[in-house]
Nucleic acid binder design. Structure first.
Lengths: 292, 292
DNA sequence: CAATTACTATCAGAAATCATGATGATATTT
DNA sequence: AAATATCATCATGATTTCTGATAGTAATTG
């Protein structure tokens, strides 16, 4: 039966172009490679190289086998990377629950870096409304939570303030409130407000309800779509709203009591008294720089 | 260094639940498996099984490694399938050039069957206008050609007639010719006709040019889009046109001299005096039944 | 409860595999 | 023409793997 060493010899010979060079590279003797390839050829009953020329050249069949051999060796590298990862105490998986309002462009940069730094650790991202995330962290079903803070602080989980996320009040371009200047709270009351609400603690809303009539969704993308459809007005994360404002799909509202964009605090949640591995820790540190 | 046998032992032990069962299945002795797994654990420096219980149970680390091991073994199976394929004389690749007018639904069934019967042989499908295919077959750049016949027969390639493909004359729903009854050839002349034309032999058109003004494309999908856009009328394969007619994007023209759908012959081309492998041969046979 | 069965770990020797270094043949470079 | 580099082959030694025996342990059975 052929072994991984045989496949490695084969691939390396193709790479370097000669048995001798392959042997040097793999720290073996030339005859070892020569015999190794020969025995691989016997095992597979396939002639891999044409030895009639100066340097052994791949046969058509050999190049077909080569693809498979390389593929196997890549997987072996992955396996070795995984064991190295285990030795460094890295987790098999990092589970992150985050509010969809926080899907900032910079987040994708962080995810990308994560994939390079911890290639064998998988990342499980759940997009969940902020109010629901605390209990997930508390129960250990996720490692990290990324939320827009609630009014009260839950002492059973660790909080880390990382900045404020500006929100804009927006409505559709043809909404009755669209053109109006200096809106007061009273002006808003008659119009439907679209709010984020978690599924678990229905009463605990992160945002103040201003209008008498409110509709709820548990995802900012849904709210976004509803605003564009003219179903109501809402506070949306500035980075989300600005895209749509630029496309003239929605419009910022001119509200008298919003001198500056309303910017609720953003926090990372972790369970207390839990030991996290380096990947979770790394992610935690990176998320601290999520906002600007 | 661990070997494929080690990985196989590991995977099989997990599968069967015990070292002994694994040994029976792999035709070894129990102690060989016991030692094999132990040496794998030393090589990786990872404890794969928890031996404290009755039957060895995977550790968390073990299950992480297992995924990689299984993946490697799957690839090894693929490599072995490829060598078996080589031994059966199967080709690494079958190259098919076909007219886009012949992308019948049944063709996908044939491709699917091909992938199951020749899993390690790849298929290269080029969508090329019929007039250009002959020379590709002749020069050996493709193994099989699937064309709508030209008037004259090229004696340097092998022809196999497999049926007739009905064409409908169609135009856009709002085209001037759309509603008219009993169109004669003279009625068509003033309106732009959209024709298929190959890039190589520009003069050799498979279809008669009726209108004074004609536009050309080398792909029926393009012509389809042009008809829908109202750029002209065309003969389209019935199976293609019917989809769009059902969606009221185009309309069949009522032409006096077309009592029945115009149905040019369809042929398979192969190079003369070439030896093809079983995969090409199989494809050839299947394509014979392409047209019902 | 004792006997049986099925399992794993360990060990020493046999068997197989693999690596080494030397040698000869051939092709390329100097 | 000499020097250099390559590959195949071979006998030997090193290493790994397999085997069969033995012993210990947990579950099952009568």
């Amino acid at each position: 039966m052929y072994s991984l060493e045989h496949l490695r010899m084969f691939a390396e010979t193709v790479e370097t172009g000669s048995f001798s060079a392959c042997a040097r590279k793999l720290g073996k003797v030339q005859s070892a490679v020569s015999q190794g390839i020969a025995s691989l050829e016997v095992d597979l009953d396939v002639e891999l190289f044409d030895r009639s020329t100066r340097k052994p050249t791949l046969t058509a069949q050999g190049s077909r086998i080569l693809e498979f051999a390389r593929s196997i060796l890549r997987q072996v590298d992955d396996l070795n990377a995984a064991t190295a990862s285990i030795h460094h105490g890295e987790e098999a998986e990092v589970r992150l629950a985050m509010d969809s309002a926080l899907a900032l462009p910079h987040l994708h940069r962080i995810f990308h870096d994560f994939s390079e730094r911890f290639p064998t650790t998988s990342l499980d991202v759940a997009s969940i409304a902020s109010p629901d995330i605390g209990s997930l962290v508390k129960s250990g079903r996720v490692d990290l939570g990324l939320i827009i803070s609630e009014a009260e602080i839950d002492n059973e989980v660790e909080h880390c303030f990382i900045g404020n996320l500006p929100f804009h009040a927006v409505c559709a371009i043809d909404h009755p409130l669209a053109g109006r200047q200096q809106l007061s709270m009273n002006d808003l009351i008659p119009y439907r407000e679209l709010l984020l609400r978690g599924s678990e603690q229905a009463g605990l809303d992160a945002f103040p309800k201003m209008s008498t009539l409110a509709w709820f969704a548990n995802d900012y993308r849904t709210i976004c779509a509803m605003v564009i459809d003219g179903l109501g007005w809402a506070y949306l994360p500035a980075f989300l709203a600005e895209d749509w404002i630029a496309q003239a799909k929605m419009q910022r509202m001119n509200i008298r009591f919003d001198h500056k964009p309303w910017s609720p605090p953003v926090e990372i949640l972790t369970a207390k008294e839990t030991t996290h591995g380096p990947a979770t820790w790394w992610m935690y540190e990176e998320l601290k720089s999520l906002i600007e």
